[in-house]
Structure formats: C-alpha cells, structure tokens
C-alpha cells in the first residue's frame, strides 16, 4: 500500500487466486452445504408443509410453496456465503494468521488485498448458487434459460454482502462481535425479506422496512428469474438497489480496512 494514497489495480486477482487455491483443497466440504441444504429444505417444506400450504399466489401466478421458496433459498445462500467468507474467514486471515501482514510486504496494496478477498467472497456465492441451481433443477423447480440470470446475480449479491461483511471486519474488536450483525441484520433479513412468505402479507409499514433490506431485492430478482417475468422495473429498482449498495459498501470496506491495517 502506499501508506498515503489509495491504489487499486488488477493485482488484486493474485489474492483471489490464493483464496481459490486454498479453497480447491477443501472443495468437497464447501460443496457439501449448498448440495445438501436445498435437499433438506425441499424435503421439509415440500413434504412437511404441503398439507398446510398447498400453493400460493405470487404476482398473479399460482405456484407451489416449494417453488416459491426455492429461489429465496438460493438468495439467502448467496448472502451467507459472501458474508461469512468476508467476516469470519477474512478475520482469521487478518488477525490470527496475519496473512495480510505478510502480503503487505509484497507489491500489493491494502486495497488490492481487500478487493481480492471480496471478489473471492462473491466467487463463493456464485459457486454455491451454481450448485444449488443444479440440485433444485433435479426437483424441477428451476426454469431455463431465465434462471441462468441467477449466476451474475449471485456474483453481484456476493459483492454486496461481502463488502458489508468486510466493513464489519474492519471495525470489530474480536471475532465474537460478528454475532451482532448476524443477529441484528442477517437473521431478520433471512426471515423477513420475502423468503418464506410474500411481503404483501405484512402490514404496510413492515413492507416499507422490508424493501430497504438488500436481501429482499436479491430474493425478488431470484424469484422472477426462476418462475416469474423479469420486468424493467425489477431490474431497475432491485438491480439498481444492489448495485448502489455495493457502490457504497465496497469503498466503506476498503476505508475501514485501511484504517485498521495501516499503522
């Protein structure tokens, strides 16, 4: 890093490559979760819930509950993968392994290290989404080719949640403090972002709150890509929201990490 000024080049890919190499050694473990998770959910909600909620209306379409829930499953997985990678895993590399200290003695800047890490977080989201798409396809819950739009969406969502996670990594005092954003942000989003029930069923004020959450937009986009029709409105509002939030959180993450690492 230039101690004084900001410097970001393609060299960040070298850090991404390091993460890729490390992950390749334990790929079977990283694949297990996105492989099994949708199967468990489909089994629980598809079989167990069917009696309670046979089907529901979403944007004028009648869909089974499992079909309604499947894209939300992918969306939450996109959120968790990048967020966990850029909080717990990045924190371990930064604080316990001191990997960043070592890399900062090579021709890489702090910005490049952190960007490489966020790109890797987004890659993990993309990989998880890919595995889940394949699994859910086997249950006939995915419609092609529209659903392929989920892949770039996964990467964008990964960048967004990874940047949010990395911003926290820049400020937390210890690794246990990540419980706070998880309990106060991620878990509420997981429950109230239109994941398990349509947002329209909420009272007006709660709907308004739900639409401020990034996961709501990710879920909405994933859903119209799997069984709805992607309108310009969706792309503009939800896509725009995710892009804008990434554009805000990514530099925030870089600034927080600069403050933390450059002494």
């Amino acid at each position: 890093m230039n101690p004084a000024s900001f410097s970001l080049t393609w060299r960040c890919l070298r850090v991404w490559k390091r993460d890729w190499l490390v992950n390749r050694q334990s790929w079977h473990i990283s694949f297990l979760v996105p492989l099994l998770e949708p199967i468990l959910y489909v089994a629980a909600f598809g079989v167990g819930f069917r009696a309670l909620i046979p089907e529901l209306q979403y944007r004028g379409e009648t869909v089974s509950y499992v079909m309604f829930m499947a894209p939300a499953l992918i969306a939450t997985s996109i959120m968790y993968n990048a967020f966990f990678e850029n909080t717990y895993s990045s924190f371990v590399r930064m604080y316990y392994q001191k990997t960043y200290d070592a890399i900062m003695a090579t021709p890489l800047s702090v910005e490049e290290i952190i960007t490489g890490e966020i790109l890797w977080g987004a890659t993990k989201s993309l990989l998880a989404a890919t595995v889940m798409l394949v699994v859910l396809s086997l249950f006939g819950l995915i419609r092609y080719p529209d659903s392929l739009g989920i892949l770039p969406l996964a990467f964008l969502g990964g960048l967004c949640f990874g940047s949010i996670g990395m911003a926290f990594t820049g400020v937390v005092k210890n690794i246990d403090m990540f419980n706070l954003p998880i309990f106060l942000l991620l878990t509420p989003m997981f429950l109230f972002s239109g994941t398990f029930f349509p947002i329209d069923t909420l009272p007006g004020w709660a709907q308004a709150v739900a639409w401020t959450l990034p996961l709501t937009h990710l879920v909405a986009l994933a859903r119209v890509m799997t069984f709805g029709v992607l309108t310009w409105q969706d792309a503009l509002i939800s896509g725009g929201y995710l892009l804008a939030l990434t554009a805000v959180c990514f530099p925030l993450a870089l600034m927080a990490m600069r403050r933390r690492l450059i002494k």
Partner: peptide, 12 residues
C-alpha cells in the same frame, strides 16, 4: 521481509 510472527499460510 521476514516478520517477527510466523505469518505463514497455515492452510497451505
């Protein structure tokens, strides 16, 4: 640079 800590990559 050889740091004071053994900041090796333990995952590799």
């Amino acid at each position: 640079v050889c740091h004071q800590d053994n900041n090796l990559d333990t995952e590799m």
